[in-house]
Design a binder for these strands. Sequence first.
DNA 1: ACCTGAACACCGTTCAAGT
DNA 2: ACCTGAACACCGTTCAAGT
Lengths: 195, 195
Amino acid sequence: MPAKRPPIPLSRERIIDAALHIADSQGLRRLTMRRLGDALQVEAMAIYHHLPRGKDALMDALAEHVTAVHVEPGGSWQESARAWCRASRAALREHPGVLALALTKPPKGRAASAIREQTEQLAEAGLADPAGAVRALRAYVFGAVAVEVQRSGWAEPSGDGDEPWRPPSRGGGSPEADADFELGLEALLAGLTGR
Amino acid sequence: MPAKRPPIPLSRERIIDAALHIADSQGLRRLTMRRLGDALQVEAMAIYHHLPRGKDALMDALAEHVTAVHVEPGGSWQESARAWCRASRAALREHPGVLALALTKPPKGRAASAIREQTEQLAEAGLADPAGAVRALRAYVFGAVAVEVQRSGWAEPSGDGDEPWRPPSRGGGSPEADADFELGLEALLAGLTGR
DNA sequence: ACCTGAACACCGTTCAAGT
DNA sequence: ACCTGAACACCGTTCAAGT
């Protein structure tokens, strides 16, 4: 007979991880408090103890998780911006299930501070309109990832249930898409200088 | 006493219009078959007669509605691309409630043909990689609208219920955002030539 | 402090039935 | 052909209760 399962204590982190897994493999529409509870070996109501605002809080947390990136401050502003954009793209691509949230919800918490941080780095480097530049960089990443994920055919029925969504970012994904991204990024950075 | 309401027959078009209104004013999460039925003075089950696949079909239809743009073919490829991007941006901004669907669902039906159409126009003009160009243009519009709508503060509680979301596109919206959009668009078009 | 059980109002969808 | 009513399985969330 199986030993009584050791009850790993629930935590905000474990909840978010499980939620990401469900959203990425089955879609946001199937991410349900009850299903999430099942995945965590817990009754759905237990989740409310860790996320008091319930499903809204969960959605906020998911958007924040996939959207709050941090990069080391060293180097020129171009290098900083490059690193930031690449990290953002990687994070968004890794979790197509919550992309709709990430592109749509206004940044809060750590996501908002990440934006402020990046804006300051560009300001310190003497860029004329750092806020506008960060806006343009975010828009570039958002658009690029949106068409990438659309083209990847994620979101379509896919037939079976728990297909383990393999992120294209393991090892860098399609080299063609990577090259396109880098090309457009360089063009944007060049355009940002003469503003 | 009020006269017996004249029963305007239900139709796919009326359903989609009502759904857009609900999504834009209350958010996608509150767009419900039952609420939609109420708005149409009909039991929810009547909707299934016009959209056999139910809510999935409705979501597809909404994404398609806001994403299938058509522009007249005349002029240079740059003019054609400009018109296409402006029309796309306008359509997406008009309905922030379904933006998440539009950015996320792979194009189908009229939306897919609109893309093919635009690709052909760029191909006929002799562009080297017309498909890649359309991809870049779509990404640009998607990203621009995503940060615009995020910044507009749509999606946040807003407190009250049936606030009649006023589209910023009546008359062109914020002139600053418009200028940014046009600037980035010209830069992208220039970049597309030397590919 | 952390989790459960029962309960409530509300979902999407089906199906037989009405007109 | 088009719509309704009743029914079913499933939601999110609350609250009192258990440990």
